[in-house]
Simulated scan of single mutants.
Amino acid sequence: MNRAQLGAALRALRVASSKEAKAVARSALMSPSKLSKIENAKLAASATDVERILTAIGVSDEVKAEYAEAARASATEATAWRLLKRIGVHKGQQAAKALEAQMSMLRLFQPVLVPGLLQTPEYIRAVLQRHNLSEDALTRTLSGRLERQAVLYDNAKALRFVITEPVLRWRIVPPQMMAAQLDRIVSISRLSHVDIRVVPLRIQQHDIANHAFVIRDDRMVTVETVHAEVVVTNPRDVGLYVDKFDGFERVALSGNEMRSLVEGIRDDFLREQETG
């Protein structure tokens, strides 16, 4: 059940109950405007919203449970990569840029690749080539990602990155380019509103680095899977990602200790280039 179907169902149940919208909204502890937006699919209803509305209407516990679960399901949306490719991967960069313009805080966890906002052009190109894009689409998407990086210099935003040490060692580009990529991470880490941390391999871990995810404020999480991009907006589910990020952030190296680790790996790449 999507947002529109859920809203229509809630409206139908309210009409069937013969209760006026204002009375239902009052009992559900929300404004009539919010109720109207939910019923007309202009606003996503949380499971709590649905439970309050249905309690105000007076339906059974079984019906409440069914529709609350539908609300939780509709709070997670997945868009397959094949569909994004069809409409233009570069448009995904435009959408991300718009989201980043509106947010005040970004928290990004990445156990596999250098985060897109920190990537060099050579690294971006190497990553995008896995999508089998045309040269034109690749160039437009690369340009879009570089344009997004302007957000790094907006000191009104708090940008927090946690990556794992294997990210620094995973050979996406040749050694000299990897060294340049690591230099960029060190450079960006010196910005006052940017916090970059690295989880080192040497420490005992108490969590599993399942996959990458991005938290924008406390409202939305974006997850990249093999087949799709998943967007999570259910507050309870968003909270799970916040907790996971916080856990890795606490054990990660920061500041000069982090930069020392990154520079050591960079020097390894440079020595390899010299002897290769």
Rank of each mutant, 00 (worst) to 15 (best):
Q5I: 01
S17D: 09
K19I: 11
E20T: 05
A23Q: 13
A25C: 07
A25E: 01
R26H: 14
M30A: 04
S36T: 01
S36N: 06
N40T: 01
N40G: 00
A44M: 15
A45M: 06
A47P: 00
A47W: 02
I53Q: 03
Y67N: 07
E69G: 08
T76S: 14
W81F: 10
G88W: 15
K91Q: 14
A95S: 04
A96W: 12
L106H: 05
R107C: 03
R107M: 05
R107P: 00
L108F: 14
V112Q: 14
L117M: 10
Q119T: 06
E122L: 12
E122R: 15
A126M: 09
L133F: 11
T139E: 15
R140Y: 04
T141V: 07
L142D: 04
S143N: 15
G144F: 01
Q149R: 11
A150M: 06
Y153W: 14
A158I: 09
F161A: 06
I163V: 15
T164N: 08
L168Y: 07
V173G: 12
A179N: 01
R184S: 01
I185V: 11
V186Q: 04
S187H: 14
S192Y: 10
S192E: 15
S192I: 04
V194W: 00
I196T: 14
V198W: 06
V199C: 03
Q204R: 15
Q204E: 14
I208V: 13
F213G: 07
V214I: 13
R216I: 09
D217I: 02
D217R: 08
T222I: 07
V223M: 12
E224I: 11
T225N: 07
T233A: 11
T233F: 08
P235K: 11
R236P: 12
Y241V: 15
D246V: 02
G247H: 15
L253Q: 12
M258P: 08
R259L: 06
R259W: 07
R259F: 11
V262P: 06
R271T: 03
